[in-house]
């Protein structure tokens, strides 16, 4: 085996030995990292899921353009032509005032008499705009704003309030998740750095001897970084397992018609090797940064 590999193997064995020596502490720290990553993962999954639901629903809701009573046919045709040339518009259906009244009467026969009492049909003519499903909420709002600028347009509705609530919730989840994640990550770093500090304290004699026999700071630090990384890797692995289990349990529920608001919607964020790697890597990174905070302080002494 080449010399650098011996060196690495020796340092790795030292890191493993340190974890074994403080196994209970390492497991507790690893579980803390797991909880942090699990919560971050759940926040991220729910946030992405809501975003997808919002995207899908707004595509289904489409857009309705209500025309003013004094909208001239030329104005209407100009708007129709403009809409039909927009790439994000899949189709446009026209509804005249008379068709609107007929539909109203059909849907609400009990109120048909009321409509008949009125001298003038109060229902406006409209254009029902079917949007491309991939269109974002922001793009829909932008399109609606442009349509509102056309002469003869009275109002544009595209489920903005409902979408705004849903997107607000997903934004809140993103902000809340990021804040909670940052706090949890800080707490985790604090715990990891304390674990390493304890480990350093337990091995201070060994470190003194290492210094006396000519060990460089890098040589002394490496096993501690490995200890942090291994602990974090364990935490990331546990978080990945728990998230995979959650995905497996909750995913089918969301896909069933009884799944409530989100029933029949898209599946939870797909959970695969990439997610496991991100969680394990994140755990290892948390472990190493916590270690850095602690050992950096120690090495300054």
């Amino acid at each position: 085996m080449p010399r650098p590999l011996y060196h690495l193997a020796f340092l790795f064995a030292d890191g493993v030995r340190a974890v074994r020596t403080h196994l209970a502490l390492a497991v507790m720290t690893g579980l803390t990292i797991a909880v942090t990553l699990l919560l971050l993962g759940l926040f991220t999954a729910v946030y992405h899921h809501l975003e997808r639901v919002a995207e899908r629903l707004h595509g289904e809701l489409g857009m309705v353009v209500f025309l003013a009573d004094d909208c001239a046919p030329a104005q209407r045709d100009a708007l129709l032509g403009w809409l039909r040339h927009r790439p994000e518009v899949a189709a446009v259906t026209q509804t005249s005032k008379e068709e609107a009244a007929a539909t109203f009467t059909k849907r609400h026969p009990e109120s048909a008499a009321l409509l008949a009492l009125l001298e003038e049909n109060p229902l406006p003519a409209s254009l029902e705009v079917h949007l491309d499903g991939a269109l974002t909420a922001a793009a829909t709002a932008s399109l609606a704003h442009e349509v509102e600028g056309f002469a003869g347009v009275d109002a544009v509705r595209y489920g903005e309030q409902w979408l705004a609530s849903l997107l607000g919730l997903s934004r809140w989840l993103r902000g809340g998740g990021a804040s909670a994640g940052a706090l949890l990550a800080l707490a985790t770093l604090f715990i990891v750095s304390n674990q390493v500090a304890l480990s350093i304290y337990a091995r201070r004699e060994e470190i003194d001897i290492m210094r006396l026999i000519g060990a460089t700071n890098r040589f002394i630090r490496t096993p501690f970084y490995l200890e942090g990384a291994l602990t974090g890797l364990f935490g990331g692995g546990v978080a990945a397992l728990l998230l995979a289990a959650t995905h497996r349990l909750v995913g089918p529920l969301l896909a069933t018609p009884g799944g409530g608001l989100l029933a029949g919607s898209l599946d939870l964020v797909s959970f695969g090797i990439r997610q496991v790697a991100v969680l394990a890597g994140g755990g290892a990174l948390l472990g190493m940064v916590g270690c850095w905070a602690s050992i950096g302080h120690f090495m300054k002494r």
Binding site: M1, R3, Y6, H7, A9, F10, M210, I213, G214, A215, F219
Partner: peptide, 11 residues
């Protein structure tokens, strides 16, 4: 071995 490893001698 520990002292030797510090000096980069292994195996």
């Amino acid at each position: 071995l520990f002292a030797l490893q510090v000096a980069g001698i292994g195996g």
